[in-house]
Design a protein around this nucleic acid. Structure first.
Lengths: 229, 229
DNA sequence: ATGAAGGTGTCACGATTGTTTCACAGAGCG
DNA sequence: CGCTCTGTGAAACAATCGTGACACCTTCAT
């Protein structure tokens, strides 16, 4: 699920095996084929997160596969890295203009290819780059300002949102009311300590689901913490 | 305003001029500097859409500039294309791992560089690459200046159009009023924050359809975002 | 030029929503 | 059992947002 899916289209078996091995070690789920038409089928069947595509392959040529992937709405936005033996600049430019996102010339080092694909993934799926916090069954997307629990979206007030974010940034850790006031309200706020309790309650009320235990733990005479459920 | 902004950091004057010329011809707004520290300043002052960065420059080294751009939250997501004379694979990989998005080895052809940067722009700001944006039931064609919802064409004022385009380029993401002023009005505009509200309302009014929920989400004390409906 | 039409930026007011405090009930603990 | 600490409802208070009105500015055709 959180493994990025990679579709590798390469007809040099030895090379394909090497690349597949390296990307599996990097945590990718790799699907491999040596045929252009089959690649298109596989891509629509289960849309990959990134495609590595040899320029010269059997069946449909690499550049044609690239064009078709772009034309299908389903796969139009999947990043493509072209792979080729050619040195000619014209081909490189043509590849990029056809819609490839990057271009690597053979011979290349697997390490560089991995680095390039990782660079693309960083750009495409920020969710995998750690922009979304997840603790237990809770999920918090700071840029979208969105919280989910077990898949259902949850509405929180501004303070409850900041409170939860702070807890999720330090899961399991216990914070005193004073620490929470500093972290969530900003230091220098002269607010009644017990006010924290009220917001804790509202946070609890916000994220509660029937039949699911409360992840906010009260630590008597110490403070509160968020536990993974 | 709707021109993509490119920051070019290169100390070879002749080369820099050539590159600047080519990208201006491509419709980019180019800012040029030969100093690493100045580059960082310029980048935070007005966040560019893409950075072309020479590895070896005066002041702070290219790789250090790259690292610092990544560290600053404001510029962390800006794509960086590294430029270098070195052929060594180690350097290329190091560059990519530092956070560069792409890598071009000198000598390179301006045409290839342009193609690579365009490939990146297609990803980052599709509207500027002449693509049609689609979010939920909304459709926006930047070149034709046309917006549709559920097939029906919609008339929007210039500001509302830019506002919607910006939202559609980053669907789901929440923008504060300040961020919207920077992105849609251009930074340096000393406009009342609440004016954004008024244009949000005009945008809502413009795209509303009877019986269809409003895709513009208000996030109290945070800003606004566009949700797919 | 001139007027009409449309777009833009401000403001003020009311409505909505969120925040803080307080008092009391109840839970935990020795 | 008595003490301390926490949960909770309600109410006063505060911040934020939506909206209509309006003055001013462009644009554009006459």
């Amino acid at each position: 699920m959180s493994q990025p899916r990679l579709l590798l289209v390469e007809d040099d078996q030895a090379l394909a095996e090497l690349v597949e091995f390296r990307f599996k070690a990097e945590g990718y789920a790799v699907t491999r084929t040596d045929d252009g038409d089959e690649a298109l089928l596989l891509a629509t069947e289960q849309v990959p997160d990134v495609v590595i595509l040899d320029w010269m392959i059997e069946g449909t040529s690499g550049i044609e596969v690239c064009r078709r992937l772009r034309r299908d709405k389903q796969t139009a936005h999947v990043p493509i890295v072209m792979l080729t033996a050619r040195e000619a600049e014209d081909d490189r430019v043509r590849g990029l203009e056809t819609g490839a996102d990057d271009y690597v010339t053979k011979p290349f080092s697997p390490r560089e290819l991995v680095a390039r694909v990782n660079a693309i993934m960083r750009r495409i799926r920020p969710a995998l780059a750690g922009e979304v916090l997840a603790v237990g069954d809770l999920t918090l997307d700071a840029t979208a300002h969105r919280v989910t629990r077990r898949g259902t979206t949850i509405a929180l007030g501004p303070t409850e949102f900041r409170l939860l974010r702070h807890f999720m940034e330090h899961p399991g850790r216990v914070f005193s009311r004073n620490q929470l006031l500093d972290a969530v309200w900003g230091n220098g706020s002269d607010i009644e300590l017990r006010t924290v309790d009220v917001h804790i309650r509202r946070l609890r009320k916000g994220i509660e689901l029937p039949g699911v235990p409360d992840p906010v733990r009260t630590v008597r005479s110490a403070g509160y913490s968020l536990e993974a459920v």
